[in-house]
Design a protein around this nucleic acid. Sequence first.
DNA 1: ACCCCTGTTCGGCG
DNA 2: CCGCCGAACAGGGG
Length: 276
Amino acid sequence: MPELAEVEFYRKQWDLGLQQVLVGLELHEKRRVFRKCDLQILRDLSGKTFQRSRALGKKLEFAFSGDLFLGIHLGMSGGLRSEPPQFSSESHDHLVLRFSKCTLVYRDPRMFGLVICQKGRESGDWFSNSGPEILSDAFTLPLFHQYVKRKADWGVKKFLLDQAFFPGVGNWMADEILWQCGLNPAIKTGVLSEGEVSNLRCKTRVICRTALRRIGEKYDDVPKGWLFHERWSGKGICPIHSIPLEKTVVGGRTSAWCPKCQPFRTGPGMAVKKAV
DNA sequence: ACCCCTGTTCGGCG
DNA sequence: CCGCCGAACAGGGG
């Protein structure tokens, strides 16, 4: 489930443990999510203070005293939550952090997620990204044009899913952006008009900002009128045209799109505006 | 029962 | 050697 805003929501679930000392740690070390984790460093977290956390795209980083960092990627089905001190872990709770006032739990049934541990002043190479965050000042229009130029022969859906360019954007966000831009997911980025490129960047930022504000605060608070609500309901209907959505595999992922809002084409087009 | 999946990596193939 | 694509990972939900 977790994309940009859901990741932020889950990050906050662990805020209850901030500035507290980790008094106990339970883990199922054989599980797949620890496949890249240094278990020695992970166990060293015991007795340390949970100082701060941050998110970058779909990655989460939790900083502890002693220059220790815990990194988590939630994969397809991961989630974080806080429980009372006396909580007993359940079958998919792979990592359980005990504090005096709360218990922080990492759960992931499908185990596509990842736990990383590092020691050092810097949080290390895992928690970093080649490009700027979508909502940062560095995510400029000229930079966006460079991206488009570099991937001119990519379908725009595949383009949006590239984490190096769009950290945090996942399948549903990409579909939301394309629908609100009136762009078919299979259109090559090189074919977009100047206005469409500019609109694509703008809508991407607005949707990220709105999603962070709403979903980041309350998991299921998805803005009314968004394609999201129709995406996987048995018969998805375009909120604008009330006609069935198409479901096709584009860029390796199932995509939902409206044939009226998002007609396919192979040549230059005009910028499309839509108010949602 | 069967088919689907909001992510990422890897190996085969052209 | 490179890029694209499907498979694989593993379990839950419709």
